[in-house]
Computed example of a mutant assay.
Amino acid sequence: MPTAQHGGERGPAREQMPVRRGLAPLDERLSEPERRCAERLRELRARIGLSSEELAERLSGEGIRVDRTRLSKFFNGREVPRREIAVRLHELAAAEEDGDVSAEEVKTTRALMYAAACVRSPLQAREFELATAREELDRHRAEAVQELASLKQELHDERKRRQDAEDALEDMAFHSREEIRALTEERDAALDRIAQLEGQIRQAGAVLRLRDRDAETLDQIARATDAELSLWESEGSGDLAGVCASVVYLRDADEDEAADRLIEHIVLGHSVQDVMNLADDFMAMRRYLDGARVRHDLARLRKPIDIFRWLSGEDENSEARSRLLRAMAGVAPMANLVRLYKAFTDHGCSGLTVSLLEAVIGENRAVPEEGDFWTKELRIELDEMQQLKADHP
């Protein structure tokens, strides 16, 4: 039949077309700032003409880490994007429309994002505030640099004016009394202005140095905020890549305390497996000290039962298992080390018990002779193993 033939012709064409899903209606429970922000982002998405999945791929290709799920949350008003996404969205829209990025449009989008962040995400609101303060500081610094340059140029001109007057006064025979008086007044005026300019230049230089110091302080605060944001985002997505990058950034910026705090947050807030994966990521990047720091914090801060469960599930030849056992032997509180030994013994994990004893000996960890039953048992087994090694080197 013609109808069937017509349908048969259209079937394959439909299969080849990409499926683009529309956005769900905005939740009526959204606040007005959240709604206006989401509507603005939806408008940009429509101008760009890509699905959320395609847009996420384009954004991620520019160094912005965002997946389709998170992007959909932005468009639905359930999350607020990071500040840098605003510029990139406008760049994509301008490219699609063969136009230029409007600074005013970007400013409006960022203002809407900030208003939504104030309602939904205090951390992101802080990020916006710090970035705005940094931009304002940069503007004032540029004005200070320009003012300092103008003062230095004027000082140069006044010094030349003074020198010209002094050169002219050297040969008084060729000048009348009135000319000499005029030259003297010009020289003295130049000297007064030079003294004034030198004072202004010293103050302008001091202001510039203070602005540079303000910028350093703002950058430190911004890095700490970015680290906290990365931590918050990783807790929502289960992805620690952003946290790893933040730690590296903080280390390279000599913000070791902030990096250490971030690692402690990860160790306490994620599964042992995730934390060990993070340590492996650092090792793969040749950030060996950070990899060791992760394992040491895991050994110091986590409950022995968490460590036991992970160790008992690892292969006996696992290098990761050996590294964590060495960390436990080296830095874990003695009470935790004893509890781990007790757990191995209670559950018949003889291989783990032997590995723990060897690690304790290898780390030269001293186990007190006095203590509870399990502390004494650990000490006895260590003495026996050391004696055995001495008898059979």
Rank of each mutant, 00 (worst) to 15 (best):
S230A: 13
L231E: 04
L231P: 00
W232M: 11
W232C: 08
E233Y: 00
S234L: 03
S234H: 03
S234W: 01
E235Y: 03
E235H: 11
E235A: 06
G236P: 04
G236Q: 11
S237H: 03
S237W: 01
G238Q: 05
G238R: 03
L240T: 02
A241I: 03
G242P: 03
V243C: 06
V243L: 05
V243S: 06
C244H: 07
A245H: 10
V247M: 02
V248G: 10
Y249Q: 15
R251W: 05
D252W: 03
D252Q: 14
D252L: 12
A253N: 15
A253T: 10
A253F: 04
D254C: 12
D254V: 02
E255S: 13
E255F: 10
E255R: 12
D256Y: 10
D256K: 11
E257L: 13
E257T: 15
A258V: 14
A259K: 07
A259C: 07
A259G: 13
R261K: 08
R261T: 08
R261S: 06
E264L: 08
H265R: 15
I266M: 13
I266S: 09
I266R: 08
V267W: 01
V267S: 02
V267K: 05
V267Y: 02
L268F: 00
G269I: 11
S271L: 06
S271E: 14
V272G: 12
D274V: 00
V275E: 03
V275C: 08
V275M: 07
M276H: 08
M276T: 10
A279C: 03
D280A: 12
F282H: 01
F282Y: 05
F282P: 04
F282T: 00
M283H: 14
A284K: 10
M285D: 12
R286L: 08
R286I: 01
R286K: 13
R286A: 09
R287D: 07
Y288G: 09
L289A: 11
D290K: 07
G291S: 09
G291Y: 01
